[in-house]
Each structure stands twice: as structure tokens, then as C-alpha cells.
């Protein structure tokens, strides 16, 4: 792939997928600022890895996989940093209340709070399935997992969220 071809392909990914990838990252990290910063890092990774893209996966699946891995790394680092500095990661509900780019009501606040209680991988599976209506087969390619285990993961996440909302008397 020549330099010009790589640049053209990169611009195509930006044009076609940047918005979808933004929402995928935003679902996982919650905050707009974090998602914005992380997206820059993700696209730098995509640009760096693009010459080695062999085309054996769909471009969107490949880009999505990079975005998912980077976001999971970000969440892991955030958790470790908080543990090392003996600080509690700020409560999801507090963050949502302060977020100027959150337009949901009380029910949505509780849903986001319940989502944030899930392990990062479960949250990724749930948001891809629930918000993006992605097929399990596509999610399996992104997460390097089997359809069966993803179905189980989604089901567990669904039950946890349902139980959380039930505690707050909201039907899901």
C-alpha cells in the first residue's frame, strides 16, 4: 500500500466510522471529554496499524476492535490510577449530573449508573448489542470471543441491570 493509498483509506475510515466509534467509546467511558481524548488516541493507533491491515477482516470490524481494546486499556488504567492514589473513581451518577452533554431523565441516569457497575468487557458487549444493535457474530469478531459466550455475557449484564433498576423501582 502506497503512502497516498494509506492516507486515502484512513480518511475513508474517519469519514465513515468516526461517529460510530465515538458513540461506542462514549457508551463505555461515559464522559464526552474522555471519549474525545480517547478517540484521538484510537485514530493515531489506526493510522499506525493501517499499513499492516491485511483486509482479512472488514475495515469497520478491525477499527472497532482497536477502539474497544484502547477503551478497555483506558478503563483499566483509570482503575489502577485510582487504586494507587487511594481515590475513588467519582460516582457515575454524580458525573452524569455534572455532565452538560447528558440529556436523559432519572431513569436514564439509573441505567447509566447500572451500566457503570458492570465489568468493562460486559459493558462493551452490552453497549454494542443494546445501543448499536450489532449482531453477535460481528461482536464476536471484535471481542475475539465466541457467540455463545457473548450471549451469556449479554444475558448476565441484562440481569444485573434489571436487578439494579428493580431496586430503584424502574421497569426495564
Amino acid at each position: 500500500m502506497t503512502q497516498q493509498e494509506t492516507t486515502d483509506l484512513f480518511n475513508q475510515i474517519v469519514k465513515d466510522y468516526s461517529e460510530r466509534l465515538y458513540w461506542h467509546v462514549r457508551d463505555m467511558v461515559g464522559s464526552h471529554d474522555d471519549a474525545n481524548d480517547l478517540l484521538q488516541e484510537i485514530f493515531i493507533k489506526i493510522w499506525t496499524a493501517l499499513p499492516s491491515f491485511r483486509g482479512d477482516a472488514q475495515l469497520f470490524t478491525w477499527a472497532h476492535r482497536i477502539a474497544t481494546n484502547e477503551t478497555l486499556n483506558f478503563l483499566r488504567k483509570q482503575k489502577v490510577r485510582a487504586a494507587l492514589s487511594f481515590e475513588k473513581i467519582s460516582n457515575a451518577q454524580d458525573r452524569i449530573a455534572d455532565d452538560p452533554y447528558f440529556n436523559g431523565g432519572a431513569a436514564e441516569q439509573l441505567l447509566v449508573k447500572a451500566l457503570n457497575k458492570l465489568p468493562a468487557k460486559q459493558r462493551a458487549v452490552f453497549s454494542m448489542r443494546y445501543y448499536d444493535d450489532m449482531k453477535y457474530e460481528d461482536i464476536a469478531q471484535i471481542m475475539h470471543s465466541s457467540v455463545g459466550s457473548l450471549k451469556a455475557s449479554y444475558h448476565i449484564a441484562y440481569q444485573k441491570i434489571k436487578a439494579e433498576l428493580k431496586n430503584n423501582t424502574i421497569d426495564f
Binding site: V14, E19, W23, W47, Y101
Partner: peptide
């Protein structure tokens, strides 16, 4: 996207695409 309770600043995605398109030049 309609299920999401989030919004973005006005014209964010245009700005985002413009910013991300500059990555190849910056990296070179």
C-alpha cells in the same frame, strides 16, 4: 443512537472529522 441519553457539542462531528483527518500529516 436514539436510545442514548447523551449529546455532543454543536457541530462536534464535523470538527472531529477535521481534527482526525490531520493525524497523517502530524504523524509524518
Amino acid at each position: 443512537m436514539n436510545k442514548r441519553p447523551y449529546t455532543t457539542p454543536d457541530g462536534y462531528f464535523d470538527f472531529l472529522q477535521m481534527r482526525l483527518s490531520q493525524i497523517p500529516e502530524q504523524q509524518q
